[in-house]
């Protein structure tokens, strides 16, 4: 990472710390903000957060590794999560899954080469009555079929 990038990242985290506070309780909102802006929390960012909150870097990493929506490794700019839980599974998740992998040319858990989209499975989104459901970044799409799913992907491409 370049020094310039590091400095701007530090400044950004400092801004979040000023906004959310410099105690342990502020850890989650700060990490979420970094995640939203950079799609992942780099090891440098983790150590900066730890330094400013006066906790250990490994504690920050522990929290990131616990939550599915926080990442310590680079992800695509858009994260597409398909629900794999039983209700969605029974109303055609498999078809959507196949269509999506074919369209993007990557498997689940992978990122497209251009770094635009990361595919992931997720557990229940609470949309069991409207499945199959998919969540793109922070927006939920329901009652999917293969065609609809591909249209959504093309829009974000």
């Amino acid at each position: 990472m370049l020094l310039e990038e590091k400095n701007s990242l530090s400044e950004e985290i400092e801004k979040y710390v000023n906004e959310y506070g410099n105690n342990r309780a502020a850890l989650m909102p700060i990490l979420q903000a970094v995640q939203r802006n950079h799609n992942y929390v780099s090891d440098f960012a983790q150590q900066e957060v730890a330094r400013m909150l006066d906790i250990h870097p490994v504690e920050v990493y522990s929290v990131i590794s616990f939550y599915s929506f926080l990442h310590s490794k680079p992800r695509g700019r858009n994260i597409v999560r398909l629900c794999r839980t039983i209700a969605c599974d029974m109303v055609g998740k498999d078809a959507v899954e196949k269509a999506v992998t074919r369209e993007l040319g990557i498997g689940f858990g992978e990122t497209t080469k251009d770094g635009k989209i990361t595919l992931e499975f997720t557990n229940c989104l609470g949309m069991c009555d409207q499945g199959p459901a998919m969540i793109v970044n922070e927006r939920v799409f329901v009652k999917l079929d293969p065609e609809k799913a591909i249209n959504i992907l093309n829009e974000i491409k």
């Binding site: 983790q46 150590q47 906790i55 250990h56 870097p57 490994v58 990493y61 522990s62 590794s65 616990f66």
Partner: peptide, 17 residues
């Protein structure tokens, strides 16, 4: 502060940064 529990559920293990 070198060791912490990493990951969740069955995957949990103690590891470093």
């Amino acid at each position: 502060g070198v060791l912490e529990a990493i990951d969740r559920g069955y995957e949990t293990h103690i590891s470093t940064f």
